[in-house]
Nucleic acid binder design. Structure first.
Length: 645
DNA sequence: GCGTGTTTACGCGTCT
DNA sequence: AGACGCGTAAACACGC
């Protein structure tokens, strides 16, 4: 598999299949509507399209597809991955003559499905695209929460208005292919995800916009830890994943300047990286936030708009055990990571894979429930990742104090690190210790940050200006080329996360803090440019704090990121770090694993918008860095191991 | 009026 | 038997 993935990483042919994959062939177990052939409900991979062969096979009679599948087919047949209701009708009629002659009841069912099924998102039309009805797209990150799927938009006249949330959300969209999380702010209103404001314009827009926003909401959802791939009950899947029933209805998509598969690569890689970023973020800054109250964010109560917050503290057992979709990430991560990262961590245990493969037909497997797909996926990956779910420092204690919770999660995870004695988790709740079992962690070292002048020089040539703190990096830090690729980046994040940043004066890095905070607020839903910026900023950060080894070798060009302490005006020119990075760091500054990230004309406000400010903030006061490594035994692995495995 | 969208209710088949 | 997924019908509201 590893080799397969390695090769496929080049070809990227696998991406369309990974993306949002959750095709569950339930046909053999339920929903049989006829002998042989595909069954209704058999396929609900949002990324699938309908094979012409399939079409031909069901020219006569009612197609053996569920309405949800039909809708999925239709939408996916659209280059924009969205369709109006009438277009969906038309597509179905075009491809399934049965419905031409059928009454109109099926249309009602289509509408019913669209409304009811969380997989489908209503995308408001943009102002420049007037017309009747909204677009419908497939939610790449449907929230399958026990919470109401959406607010009742209008009280029905009559008595039923008193039951605003009568929908059985668990029964809704169970066939959705959950790809993760994030969908921030969508627990109650999924439409918001496809806000045309974010989306750019729904209609005629640039190909780039289309490719990036139609389905992915124009962002790289880092929060969806590998979840983009959705899950696939491989074990029960009657057909190999590599043989999606789908197939390529040949929609030439010339308007895509970036191939669809590239977009998906972007997703899969970045999402796979999300936990690492998040972990790093939490490791580095949360303590600082809590101590200094800077920006007030992570210490603030969960933002109501932050969906993930809704899942931060699921009821111990019920919420965990009742979410049938969250197991996706096991497979997801195993696919995405491909085991390429040369970590000493043991490979994913079979049980974990089996976990995702178990997918019970009814989605009752604890790991399959979507509502906590993000949450539980991480739980299932590694118990120590609980911290990643928390935005509030005080919540870490929760994650670290209850062996029972770990035990509970252990039901979903076979990760070897689960065997870390619980005492380790509870030893340093207040420190937000980043425990790690990774062998690369070594003795703690301390260092003093050099003078600002040195920093300036270092900025110009990081590799030639070893900092005292870089002594640390000499033994345990990152190589200068810490993010030449995705795996390296993840590993770097992991290593960096293992430091005890609590002792580090992070005040010089307000900009980075803010960047990461914004990323956190956005559920790590970042655009490529923002990813690049973040990488750049982190690179600077690493350099400043000595995490990056002062090696001259493959040292990436000095980032012009927000961490730049001495050239605050440098980015004012473009306001887009990535653009500058692209110019100066052609090979390294782009998001790892994303080879052709196109230059973005505009970066989202999430990250880049802060950079100018950050540049001002990143002036580093002299000599105030002290880093102390946590004792190896106390290191909690907060890295998303499964994202690698 | 019609299309669209939401919601409720119910029946059926399957699975546990 | 109950839960579940799915299909179907229908009521209702909204906007063009």
């Amino acid at each position: 598999m590893t080799s397969e993935l390695e090769s496929s990483l080049t070809s990227m042919d696998w991406l369309p299949q990974l993306t949002m994959r959750a095709a569950i062939q339930k046909a053999d177990t339920q929903g049989t509507h006829g002998p042989g052939g595909p069954k209704k409900g058999a396929l609900l991979d949002p990324s699938t399209t309908l094979d012409q062969e399939e079409v031909q096979q069901h020219k006569d009679g009612k197609p053996p597809y569920s309405y949800a599948s039909l809708i999925t087919f239709a939408i996916n047949s659209s280059p924009k991955k969205k369709m109006t209701l009438s277009e969906i009708y038309q597509w179905i009629c075009d491809n399934f003559p049965y419905y031409r002659e059928a009454g109109s009841g099926w249309k009602n069912s289509i509408r019913h499905n669209l409304s009811l099924n969380k997989c489908f998102l209503k995308v408001p039309r943009s102002k420049d695209d007037p017309g009747k009805g909204s677009y419908w797209a497939i939610d790449t990150n449907p929230k399958e929460d026990a919470l109401p799927t959406r607010p009742k938009k209008r009280p029905r006249s009559g008595e039923r208005a008193s039951t605003p949330y009568s929908l059985d959300s668990e029964s809704l969209g169970m066939d959705c292919i959950i790809s993760g999380s994030a969908s921030i702010n969508t627990v109650t209103n999924k439409v918001a995800l496809y806000n045309t404001e974010q989306d750019g314009s729904d209609s005629p827009r640039s190909s780039l916009n289309n490719s990036l926003s139609d389905q992915s909401l124009a962002s790289v959802n880092l929060n969806s830890v590998g979840s983009v791939h959705g899950y696939s009950s491989v074990g029960s899947h009657p057909e190999p994943v590599s043989q999606p029933m789908s197939l390529q209805q040949p929609p030439p998509q010339p308007q895509y300047s970036m191939p669809e598969r590239d977009k998906q690569l972007l997703f899969s890689d970045f999402e796979d990286l999300s936990a690492s970023f998040r972990s790093l973020y939490k490791s580095v800054f949360e303590q600082s936030f809590s101590q200094q109250g800077l920006m007030g964010m992570p210490s603030e109560p969960p933002q109501p708009t932050h969906t993930s917050c809704s899942y931060q503290h699921p009821p111990p057992s019920s919420s965990i055990s009742s979410h049938p979709h969250s197991g996706q990430n096991s497979l997801t991560n195993s696919i995405a990571g491909g085991g390429q990262v040369p970590l000493s961590h043991p490979p994913q245990l079979p049980a974990q894979n089996a976990h995702s493969a178990h997918g019970s037909p009814h989605g009752q497997h604890p790991s399959q429930h979507a509502p906590h797909s993000q949450h539980l996926s991480q739980h299932s990956q590694h118990p120590s990742q609980h911290a990643q779910h928390s935005q509030h420092p005080s919540q870490h204690a929760q994650h670290s104090q209850h062996p029972s919770q770990h035990a509970q999660h252990s039901q979903h995870s076979q990760h070897p690190s689960q065997h870390v004695p619980h005492s380790q988790h509870s030893q340093h709740p207040s420190q937000h210790a980043q425990h790690s079992q990774h062998p690369s962690q070594h003795a703690q070292q301390q260092g003093q940050h050099p003078s600002q002048q040195q920093q300036q020089q270092q900025h110009q040539s990081l590799s030639h200006q070893p900092l005292p703190t870089q002594q640390l990096s000499c033994s345990t830090g990152l190589p200068a080329d810490w993010y030449p690729n995705l795996d390296a980046l993840k590993e770097s994040c992991r290593i960096a996360s293992s430091y005890n940043w609590a002792d580090v004066d992070l005040s010089p890095f307000q900009g980075l803090k803010e960047s990461m905070r914004q990323a956190e607020l956005n559920n790590w839903s970042l655009e490529p440019t923002q990813i690049a910026d973040l990488c750049s900023s982190i690179n600077q950060f690493f350099a400043r704090t000595g995490v990056i080894q002062p090696q001259g070798a493959v040292q990436p060009p000095v980032c012009h990121g927000s961490m730049h302490p001495n050239k605050p005006g440098q980015h004012i020119n473009t306001g887009n770090m990535y653009m500058e990075s692209r110019q100066n760091l052609p090979a390294l500054m782009g998001p790892p694993g994303y080879p052709h990230m196109p230059p973005m004309s505009s970066a989202g406000p999430t990250m880049t918008g802060h950079h100018t400010q950050m540049n001002q903030q990143h002036l580093i006061p002299p000599g105030n860095f002290q880093m102390r490594r946590m004792p190896a035994d106390d290191i909690q692995d907060d890295f998303d191991w499964d994202s690698i495995v």
